[in-house]
Design a binder for these strands. Structure first.
Lengths: 218, 218
DNA sequence: TAATATTATTAGGCATGACTAATTTATTTT
DNA sequence: AAAATAAATTAGTCATGCCTAATAATATTA
């Protein structure tokens, strides 16, 4: 059983939609993520249902079967490992790697991902701080505390980025914020949810609520 | 201007057919290489002709235009660099890497191949001894002496394999013959073109004419 | 040269996976 | 509850890139 590139992208989209929010995975949401027409999504969900990779219920939305989930996790695993490779070995910045990993994740060869994993030293998190699924499908623990929830005076550490858009990553790059960066919350402005934070000794900056809700910390 | 996966495979096939033999690149030869129906080949050649990547003449056969050649060389460059990566960094054997490189070569990103090249230390030859095109399209010198042409008593060095089929590469692996291996010609049997060769001190073996015509040496 | 075999070409079909447009079904809002 | 909006669905179309079958053109061999 082999999946086409399109099928893999649908499985991945459904996986992300169902893990990143508790809303049901609707036709609309999938069509938004993939920039495909809802009519196309319905067609593909029918196909994936027939292949027993997805179950679709008009009211509960789309759900991956165990088989579908396994495939989705493998794709995510490949994507994140390739991201580590691109950043650590080829020297890309973290805002440049997503689109390339998007292509590399579809390369099919049973043991390629295992060899890559070994070559990279079995990393647990990708450059954005997202957990890399193990080959058995297990996910390393993930943090879910937002920077916006940290109290004034406390210091935290950037564990992951919630928004992986190029524009946000480039902004982080400009601020020299990356996974592991220590952030101290100096002040919170109740009016608009913005915060004053200290990045390094003497380096303070003000960030918006949107920013503070896009960083995961521990 | 972007090529589809199929288009890239056709360009590569035409490149290989025209560089590996002086025969014209016929519809038939392309259809044999790609395992496609001749009718499909004609359709694609028409498309590539329209895109000014190929020129097709009923009598002279198919020929890449400058533009088509440039693209083909880039694909070959990517293929061979990925092969080096797979062998040197991920520890694959040389009979396992072709099919994976076949997929990796289609990953599109302008500077990925340049970064990979740098990461690998700017190799000039791939694991099969084939020259890796430079980014300007230049090819390192290639050897064209066959083992079968070496005189009795002389010693040569394996520079490349002419036949890159899995079955031949596995045979070489079994004999511990790889690029750089020294081979001394002990005897030649006129009857069937087979040869007795010495691989290492005390290790002699007899190989067929087919074998001796599949290894390039210098 | 005529017969045969090989190649090239055309025409028509098919699967995949996208699309639009029209319609039905659900969900909100008034 | 009725009206308005949003989402889901169906039907039909289209491009890509493959296929088969039939035919035409070239080469080869007797």
């Amino acid at each position: 059983m082999m999946q086409s590139l399109s099928e893999e992208n649908y499985l991945k989209a459904i996986y992300h939609l169902s893990s990143l929010s508790q809303n049901k995975v609707s036709i609309k949401s999938v069509s938004d993520v993939l920039n495909n027409n809802p009519a196309s999504v319905i067609g593909m969900l029918k196909k994936l249902t027939h292949k027993k990779l997805v179950q679709y219920d008009k009211f509960k939305g789309a759900k991956l079967t165990d088989k579908g989930l396994k495939i989705a996790l493998l794709i995510v695993r490949k994507h994140r490992l390739w991201e580590v490779f691109l950043l650590e070995k080829l020297g890309y910045n973290w805002d440049e790697i997503h689109d390339i990993a998007e292509q590399l994740e579809h390369v099919k060869q049973n043991d390629l991902v295992e060899r890559l994993d070994k070559f990279l030293g079995f990393p647990e998190y990708d450059p954005h701080g997202d957990p890399i699924p193990k080959s058995n499908g297990q996910l390393p623990a993930t943090v879910s505390n937002l920077l916006s929830g940290i109290e004034v005076g406390k210091t935290c550490r950037v564990a992951a980025v919630k928004d992986t858009s190029t524009i946000f990553l480039q902004y982080l790059l400009k601020l020299s914020v990356s996974i592991g960066t220590k952030i101290k919350v100096i002040d919170k402005i109740a009016f608009d949810g913005s915060m004053k934070i200290q990045l390094r000794k003497g380096v303070e900056t003000i960030v918006s609520q949107k920013f503070a809700e896009s960083l995961l910390v521990d």
